[in-house]
Design a binder for these strands. Sequence first.
DNA 1: TGGGTGTCGTTCAAATTCGAACCACTGGAG
DNA 2: CTCCAGTGGTTCGAATTTGAACGACACCCA
Lengths: 146, 146
Amino acid sequence: MAAWRAYLSASHLLERRVEEQLKAESGLTHAQYEILARLSDAPDRRLRMTELARGVVVSKSGLTYQIGQLEKRGLVERATCPSDDRGVLAVLTDRGVECLRRTAPGHVAVVREVLIDLLTPDELEMMTRVMSKVEAVTRASASPLP
Amino acid sequence: MAAWRAYLSASHLLERRVEEQLKAESGLTHAQYEILARLSDAPDRRLRMTELARGVVVSKSGLTYQIGQLEKRGLVERATCPSDDRGVLAVLTDRGVECLRRTAPGHVAVVREVLIDLLTPDELEMMTRVMSKVEAVTRASASPLP
DNA sequence: TGGGTGTCGTTCAAATTCGAACCACTGGAG
DNA sequence: CTCCAGTGGTTCGAATTTGAACGACACCCA
């Protein structure tokens, strides 16, 4: 269980560190940054709400709330889904792209500082492999999405 | 950044899975479980509030709240610190020990299932080493404790 | 065509978390 | 001895997250 304890402490500390940096530099929450980043990588910079919720691993209601916050700031817009009247598309606006472009470097720098740069290439490769496996197993075993 | 994205998804999923299991089996939050576990390992099953907050990586006010919850359930008591009148000791009660003893097996089983058992011995060793390093660097660089 | 089942997103109340402000006490300088 | 910066915990208000309940729509099978 030593591995688990070390992992727990490290993950909590990482989260706090990243959160602190993002909030100070851009006023974004880490959750909000993840949402913007996911949208930025998506085709047409838009995603269905449920799909986005799966991606950032947050509850549906949690995503509704955060999209609301981002909408207030004009970083994201909602669009109705053409193929499904129930669906809602979250769309990254130009302001959202701009905000992400401004914020990303500082964020990436912190992530490198407290994680990536501490690992050898081997360790980094292993880390990625292990975490992907954990992700796969966990997604398969637990409730797909409440 | 692939490593970072994999890590993020995995850590969120792990947290949700562990939380779900603990809440279902014992009605404890993961944060509460960590508190009980830390206290259980401490000499005389007691720790200063600040020291405990550092250990579980939570804000001072967050710990105050959770200790209050655990006190309501009779799993923890507060005691005044003999050497410092300002200090407060969180003490694990016999009921707390009992609760932990009852809860631990299921918790450990899940942790093994979704993390430990997925790794080879080499990977486990590397994981521990890496996470310890991250912990050390992060503790050194950020605000020691707001 | 007509239901019935299931999915999509939102709303709601409750729980948890954080940071800032605050009081009580300690420990050392003068 | 006295003052004063610093530490330890709590309180307070604000923000975020979750699960359950809900209304709207889609898809399938008779």
